Simulated assay, not measured.
Amino acid sequence: MSGSEDSDDNFMPEQSVDDERTSIRAELSSLSFEELQKLKEKIGAKVYKEALFGKNDKKKPDGPRIFKRENKNRPREMSSKKPVPMFDVPKIKKREVRDPRFDPLCGEFDKKQFSQNYNFLSDIRMKDIKKIRAELKQTTDPEQEKKLRRLLQRLNDQHKASKKKKEEDASAKREKTHVVQEFKDGRQPHFKNKSERRVEALVQQYEDLKKEGTGRIQRHLKRRQQKLKKRSHKAPTGVS
């Protein structure tokens, strides 16, 4: 009996508080909105809420909220209040384009030095010519033969142009040396004009062809006649 009486004593105050709060709510329900606002301003918002809803005994946690996963395979929940770190994009250095032809940092172009540095290309070109000639003897495909002949012709033209340029440079060097020597000897040097240089070049070309054989000379003369004939046909005729 004593145990039941103690439990009733503990239960009665809570029941009386609920009854009192119910009666307060009933009285407040009969008041107008304006009267409720005045009462709230008079007793304070905190007391007003406690009278209607009771005290909130729940306390906020002191430390930061810990987000836990119900399943370890789920992604971890992150707080929306924590700012997302900004991705640091590295600055790309602007590429500076330089033209070596007009850039003083690249130095001046030395034609003679350039030809000396890349003189090995002539040897490589001759090796390629020999290799293509060997492939021409073995190939039986007409299309492949046509490609190889076209490539061989281009390499031969490049080799001839390079050889001609070297000969012209050597001739100019000899002429310059001769002029300087005449100045030193106290004589008036003779400067060759374009026509004289052209005649000398033709004579030298004839001598080179003569060394290769008479057939080479005949083919060269025939080709030259064909070029002159084409030029004469293309030349405009006078209007009578």
Rank of each mutant, 00 (worst) to 15 (best):
D6V: 14
S7E: 00
D9R: 12
D9L: 15
F11D: 03
S16Q: 10
S16F: 09
A26P: 00
L31E: 00
S32W: 13
K38D: 07
E41G: 15
A45P: 02
V47I: 02
Y48K: 09
K49W: 04
E50K: 15
L52F: 09
K55W: 09
N56H: 04
K59T: 11
G63Q: 06
G63Y: 04
R65K: 13
R65E: 13
F67E: 03
K68D: 10
R69Y: 01
E70I: 15
R74W: 15
R76Q: 12
R76F: 04
E77W: 05
M78C: 07
P85A: 03
D88A: 07
V89K: 14
R95W: 09
R95D: 10
V97Y: 15
D103G: 04
S115Y: 08
N119L: 03
F120K: 04
S122C: 12
D141P: 05
Q144N: 14
R149N: 08
L152V: 07
N156W: 02
K160C: 02
K164M: 13
K165N: 08
K166T: 10
E168Q: 11
E168L: 07
A170C: 04
A170W: 04
A172I: 14
K184E: 06
K184L: 09
R187P: 02
P189L: 02
P189H: 00
S195I: 02
E196R: 14
R198K: 11
E207S: 01
L209E: 05
G213Y: 03
T214H: 06
L221H: 11
Q225T: 06
Q226M: 01
K230I: 02
R231E: 08
H233M: 14
H233D: 14
G238R: 09
